[in-house]
């Protein structure tokens, strides 16, 4: 749910990074945070456990610049990927404008990817959203690992509706900004329709 503030001339949008545990959602945000000009970002907040697993969410506010006289602000969130945090995951999807699904390319994580994607579909539905219509991007992460499956095989299994798909290695930033850009673009395009 985009928040259009005519008083402050701002558009605020919410993007959620979804995916199975340890797929690299937080790493995506960390890289964006590290590489963004300090004037364009707020604090990166991580509600994590002592072992650095996401407990509730990570949050990063970003100012992308001005479109048609309106400042565009994106609020990036991650969900906790571990299966048993489903109640928290559901809460974070509230009012979402765009979703990035971060898939773990490793063969051993394929079932977790599929399960998480189904979980996303279900949780979106509970908030009245539909994965077939919401702005959505697929990221195939961990492409640098020797255990990574071929990208076309992952695409075949995980691509949902022909959404833009990017290969990524989040710690070094490969594909990270391309993913963000693709989802932000779709979200802004949605505004045009409204």
């Amino acid at each position: 749910m985009t928040f259009i503030n005519y008083a402050a001339r701002e558009i605020n949008c919410k993007i959620v990074y979804y995916g199975p545990g340890l797929c690299g959602k937080t790493t995506n945000l960390q890289y964006i945070y590290d590489r963004t000009n300090p004037s364009a970002k707020g604090k990166l907040i991580s509600l994590a456990t002592e072992t650095d697993r996401t407990l509730f969410f990570d949050f990063l506010p970003l100012d992308l610049g001005t479109v048609r006289g309106f400042k565009t602000r994106f609020h990036l969130y991650t969900v906790p990927g571990q299966v048993f945090y489903d109640a928290s995951r559901k809460l974070i999807l509230k009012g979402v404008d765009g979703v990035v699904f971060v898939a773990d390319s490793q063969d051993a994580r394929m079932d977790a990817n599929v399960e998480s994607l189904q979980n996303l579909e279900k949780n979106l539905k509970e908030h009245g959203f539909d994965l077939t219509t919401i702005p959505y991007v697929l990221q195939l992460n961990k492409r640098d690992l020797p255990t990574a499956l071929p990208a076309d095989e992952l695409y075949r299994q995980l691509n949902y509706k022909g959404e833009p798909t990017f290969e990524a290695t989040a710690p070094t930033g490969v594909g990270v900004f391309d993913t963000l850009k693709a989802v932000a673009k779709q979200v802004l395009m949605e505004l045009r329709k409204k």
Binding site: F3, G42, I45, F59, H75, L91, G95
Partner: peptide, 29 residues
């Protein structure tokens, strides 16, 4: 959803964007 709408008071020492997001998270939980 965590978007700040308006604020009044001594805001200079406060990160209101983070505050807004955490408040909404708190209420949602």
């Amino acid at each position: 959803n965590g978007q700040q709408i308006a604020a009044q008071g001594d805001l200079e020492s406060l990160d209101t964007t983070s505050l807004a997001s955490l408040t909404a998270g708190n209420v949602a939980a």
